[in-house]
Structures are given as structure tokens and as C-alpha cells.
Amino acid sequence: MSTDVVAASDLQVYALYLGDDCLILSHRLAELAAHAPEFEEDVALSNLALDLLGQARALLTYAGVVEAAGRDEDALAYGRDDREFHNLLLVEQPNFDFAHTIVRQLFFASYQLALYRRLEHSQDLTLAAVAAKGAKEASYHRDHARLWTVRLGDGTKESHSRMEAAVGFLWPFTGELFQPDPITQRLVAAGIAADPAALEPVWRAQIDQTFAEAGLGHPVELGIRQGGRSGLHSEHLGHLLSEMQHLHRSHPNASW
């Protein structure tokens, strides 16, 4: 088992990196249930949220098992404060308008697909299994975002300018996706984690191709806003958590 050769604490935090990305983005998408611009899209976004929630459950459960301190998926999802969350800043950014939702989806799903396709070959069998399953889902998520990006970017004046604004707002968060950190690097060396730097060319090719079709542009350099992996979040995460964790914190261990 991989935990023999690497620190369990590294593996636990890495599982939280991946699981928190899924959990927080799932919650953002769930906020749009009954608020999407058309009925089919309402169903689509709810489906995406559900896939991500399923991945989050598997990853948080695994983080709890590796930690071996008795915390299960619920304890990890509902019992941590914002400083203890490891998600990328990108996924916590709000749904300012539908363009922001779609650009965030395109950036994240393209990244997650590249990540999972590498992680399928991880020496850690649990991560490999979650990734192999998740890659099939991420591929649908990427396609969904790609179609909307082209439709809106190459749409009306209004839709195009909103997409441009969303790209402008979200681009600064893209650098964090490929930023190496010591925990990930140690796990890369052990054949467990995917090397973030290696994902960048795959991601860029996807974004460049989609943006070319959509008539959108983006800066050459990746963005520099980061801190999510080490628990330094934007102000938006606190608000998200206060809603997401409200019931569990008001009525601990409630069941119905």
C-alpha cells in the first residue's frame, strides 16, 4: 500500500486537495438549481453538481481513512473552517452571471480531465479508481462548457462581452491550477500524484482551441492569484461554507 512509502499526512492532504475542489464547485453549481437560464440547463448543472459531489464523497471518505482519526466524509465536509479547506481559489468564485459559471466550468473541467487521465495510473489504487471513473464524467463536463463557451463567445454582442468580462475576472486564478507545492511534489516522486506542471500544456491546448472557436482571447501568462491549497481563501469561501454547513452545525448529527 502506498501509505508505507509516503507520509500518510501527505496523502490525506492531497485527497483533500482533490476532494475539496469537487465539493466546493459542486456547491456552487447546486446554487443554480432552479436559476439556470433554461430548463435543460438547470438539469445539466444539477447533473454536473451531482457527479462532483459523488467524487467529493469518495475523496473525503478516503482522506478520513488515511488520517485514521475517526473523521468521516460528513465530519470533513461540515466540520472544518475555511482555513482548513484546500480547494483552488477558482472553484469558490461566485456565479456572478451565467458567463462566469461557464468560464469557471471550462477552466476547471479541462484541468480536472487532464488531471484524472494522469491519476488513473496512480500507484494509489483508491485515487486511481476515483480518477478512472471521474475522467468519464469530467469529459462530459468539459464538452458541456466548451459548447456553451462557443455559443456565447460567438453569440450576441451582449453574450460576447459578458464572456470577455468573465475571462478577465477568472483568468488570474488559473496559475494556481499548475503551481507545484511540496506535498504534491513528494507524491509525484512516489508515483501517486499527478504533476501539476505537466497538466498545463494539455489544458492550454484545450483552452486555446475553444477560445479560437469562440472568438475569445486571453492573456499569455497564467494568473497569479493563489493560496487555496494552503487554506488562504478569498472572502467568498466563508460565505459559501456558512450556507453549506449551516444545518450540520446548528443540529449536529441530525438525521431524518
Binding site: 435543460e40 438539469v43 445539466a44 444539477s46 447533473n47 462530459y140 464538452d143 458541456h144
Partner: peptide
């Protein structure tokens, strides 16, 4: 295809 996502994850409309 009207929507790639249907009433459940496994179905399209």
C-alpha cells in the same frame, strides 16, 4: 439531442 443531461445522470433527453 435536446439536452445531454436528463432527469438522471445516466440519461440524455
Amino acid at each position: 439531442e435536446a439536452s445531454h443531461f436528463g432527469a438522471t445522470s445516466c440519461k440524455a433527453l
